[in-house]
Simulated scan of single mutants.
Amino acid sequence: MGQMIRSGNEAWFRVEDASAIGVARRAAMALAGTLGFGQVARERVGIAVSEAASNLVKHAVEGTMLIRPYPDAPAAVEALALDKGPGIADLNRVWRDGYSTAGTLGIGLGGIARMAAAHDVYSIPGRGTVIGMCFTADERPPRVSRVSGLSRPIGEESVCGDAFACFDTDETAMAMVCDGLGHGELAAEASRRALRTFQEHGELPPVPLLERLHRALDGSRGAAVAVARLDRASGLVRYAGIGNISGWIVNPEGRQGLISLAGIAGRHSRTLREYTYTAPPHSMIVMHSDGLSARWDIAAFPGLTSRTPAVVAATLLRDAGTHRDDACVLALKVTP
């Protein structure tokens, strides 16, 4: 099945004052060191992350950063900067002129792009910006990822009760989102059980896999769980879920909802059922827990479906996420 891309090891930072810049820089450089980056490569990561964090402090509203191993290449560092600030009216000017906003280190987004092995930016004037950066020890770009996800705990919790996982190959992809009931350690343990079961049995069709997940969660707090299997050649999506995981097939013109049945995996459920759909080329499958409102409208995000899965997931988490619950969102491209 290939490597499993999953939640875990995410470190979230509020970036609201100057002291947070050093915290984010040190965390990114420390992670790079554990992944085998040399001194020069670590410093490159630190400079780019500092610049992104400085921009958040100077201009952002609700600025946050996520730093983690790159899910699709664990020997790389991924950093995401999210804000609800003024946005960038002309991204082409930012790259072309090496534009740097006042009060930052002076390298600008163009400098960040040169230091990162891969990068992506999505910005809407008046609504904010999401910057995705990936760093490798040798500066070679990682393979283009077709799937990514984010999980964020409620408030000051240190663990998240929501989780995602995906096996992705050129032919098929199998994705799961799990929302452990409540939050805290007991919810996180339910999601860890689901992740272990998915890793062991992710080759199964959706309903047999969901049955395995239901049994594995027996005795836990229980969870809402949904799984989707994508056949890339045909665009066929097979979907099954228990509980309030939201699933969508998304394209620039709109979205189609995917059906989950009522219940709680590990406790009680109705007879499980698989539903089939056809995803158009260049669409995406988006799955998320109820830590995100289901009322988001893709028409309010012009051009978002062309961005990388990590930036798509981060944008939806920023704008549809609630801080009153754990949150998790996964974005899977149907075609590269």
Score class of each variant (00 low, 15 high):
Met4Thr: 15
Arg6Trp: 01
Gly8Lys: 03
Asn9Ser: 14
Glu10Leu: 07
Ala11Asn: 14
Trp12Met: 09
Ser19Ile: 00
Ser19Glu: 15
Ile21Gly: 05
Arg25His: 03
Ala30Ile: 00
Ala32Glu: 06
Thr34Gln: 15
Leu35Cys: 09
Gly36Ala: 09
Gly36Lys: 07
Gln39Cys: 04
Val40Glu: 12
Ala41Asp: 01
Ala41Leu: 00
Arg42Glu: 14
Arg44Gln: 12
Val45Ala: 05
Ala48Tyr: 00
Ser50Trp: 05
Leu56Gln: 13
Leu56Tyr: 11
Lys58Leu: 02
Ala60Pro: 01
Gly63His: 09
Gly63Trp: 07
Gly63Ala: 11
Met65Asp: 04
Arg68Gly: 04
Asp72Gln: 14
Ala75Asn: 15
Glu78Gln: 15
Leu82Glu: 10
Gly87Met: 08
Gly87Ile: 03
Ala89Lys: 14
Leu91Asp: 10
Val94Pro: 04
Val94Ala: 15
Arg96Tyr: 04
Thr101Ser: 11
Gly103Gln: 13
Leu105Gln: 12
Ala113Gly: 06
Met115Ala: 11
Ala117Asn: 11
His119Gly: 03
Arg127Ile: 08
Thr129Lys: 00
Thr129Asn: 06
Val130Tyr: 10
Cys134Gly: 01
Cys134Ala: 13
Pro141Ser: 14
Ser145Pro: 07
Ser148Thr: 08
Gly149Trp: 01
Leu150Ser: 09
Leu150Arg: 05
Arg152Gly: 05
Gly155Arg: 12
Glu156Phe: 03
Cys160Leu: 07
Ala163Met: 05
Cys166Trp: 04
Asp170Gln: 14
Ala173Tyr: 06
Ala175Asp: 09
Met176Pro: 03
Gly182Leu: 08
Glu189Lys: 13
Ala190Glu: 01
Arg192His: 12
Arg193His: 14
Ala194Gln: 03
Thr197Trp: 00
Glu200Tyr: 01
Glu200Ile: 02
Glu211Gln: 15
Arg212Pro: 03
Arg212Asp: 10
His214Gln: 08
Arg215Leu: 13
Leu217Asp: 11
Arg221Asp: 05
Ala223Leu: 10
Ala224Gln: 05
Ala224Asn: 08
Val225Phe: 02
Val227Lys: 09
Ala228Asp: 08
Arg229Lys: 15
Arg232Asn: 11
Ala233Tyr: 01
Ala233Pro: 02
Ser234Met: 11
Leu236Ser: 11
Leu236Pro: 05
Val237Lys: 09
Tyr239His: 14
Ala240Thr: 08
Gly241Tyr: 08
Ser246Asn: 15
Gly247Leu: 03
Ile249Thr: 00
Val250Leu: 09
Pro252Arg: 10
Gly257Leu: 12
Leu258Trp: 02
Leu258Pro: 07
Ala265Ile: 11
Arg270Thr: 13
Thr271Phe: 07
Arg273Trp: 02
Thr276His: 15
Tyr277Val: 10
Tyr277Pro: 05
Ser283Asp: 12
Met284Cys: 13
His288Lys: 07
Ser289Gly: 12
Gly291Pro: 02
Leu292His: 01
Ser293Tyr: 07
Ala294Glu: 13
Arg295Ile: 09
Ala299Asn: 11
Ala299Leu: 12
Thr305Ala: 08
Ser306Glu: 15
Thr308Leu: 11
Ala310Arg: 11
Val311Leu: 01
Val311Ala: 07
Val312Asn: 02
Leu317Trp: 04
Gly321Asp: 04
Arg324Glu: 14
Asp325Tyr: 00
Leu332Pro: 08
Leu332Val: 08
Lys333Gly: 12
